[in-house]
């Protein structure tokens, strides 16, 4: 597969919504250990609202579609995840304005823009035990995997999942988990896990 169209993007967001719903309890449990236990519920609520919006109106291009996703997440998720995931998709939108589809290079460029936005807003660096820890190595894997979207997204998903697991021994330096100091060690970061779910569903959408 070499092109990721608007209909593929809609399928991705719907698959992500279904996966977040399925994993809601796990995400909230991870959050309860080092945060306040609502990450699963907040992400599900946001993506349910996004799917409703996407069903109500067709998007002209990828830019418009991701803008809708971003704005909806911004006004429905709340917490830190709202601005972070909302800003991420708004940036994907900005970098995809007028594009009917992504090729591998455009996908990597857009996602890298999304990562930069998350880092700008959240001021997180690699190793702070945040979603950046899953997204950053995933994009390196994607960029190094060539032009086939199925192969590139598969590599990204595997790297994100692996990195999310490896957030467990890290000391949290951002967000509510950082208040726990040493007690944050031993738990996987919930944001890195939801990010891994997003990339896993991107991969399954590209394979389908």
């Amino acid at each position: 597969m070499s092109e990721f169209s608007v209909s593929k993007a809609v399928a991705w967001i719907k698959a992500a919504s279904a996966a977040l719903e399925k994993e809601e309890t796990r995400l909230s449990d991870l959050d309860a250990a080092i945060g306040d236990g609502d990450h699963g519920a907040n992400m599900r609520r946001g993506f349910v609202a996004v799917v409703k919006k996407l069903d109500a109106a067709e998007s002209a291009d990828l830019g418009a579609l991701y803008k809708t996703v971003g704005m909806t997440l911004l006004s429905t998720v709340g917490g830190a995840s709202g601005p972070l995931y909302g800003g991420f998709f708004l940036e994907l939108g900005k970098r995809s304005m007028g594009r009917p589809a992504w090729d591998a290079a455009a996908m990597v460029d857009a996602l890298k823009g999304g990562l930069a936005d998350i880092q700008k807003r959240g001021k997180a660096e690699l190793g702070d035990k945040t979603m950046v820890d899953a997204l950053s190595p995933a994009l390196d894997a994607m960029a190094g995997a060539g032009g086939d979207l199925a192969a590139a997204t598969k590599a990204a998903a595997a790297a994100a999942r692996d990195a999310a697991t490896k957030t467990a021994p890290l000391l949290a330096r951002k967000g509510r988990a950082s208040y726990l100091g040493e007690r944050s060690i031993g738990h996987e970061d919930p944001g890195a896990n939801s990010l891994a779910l997003l990339l896993e569903t991107l991969s399954t959408t590209c394979e389908a």
Binding site: D36, G37, D38, A41, N42, R45, L74, S75, T76, V77, G78, G79, A80, G82, P83
Partner: peptide, 11 residues
């Protein structure tokens, strides 16, 4: 007011 223990949204 946001949801329980969740910050409100910018809108």
């Amino acid at each position: 007011p946001g949801h329980v223990f969740t910050s409100p949204t910018p809108d």
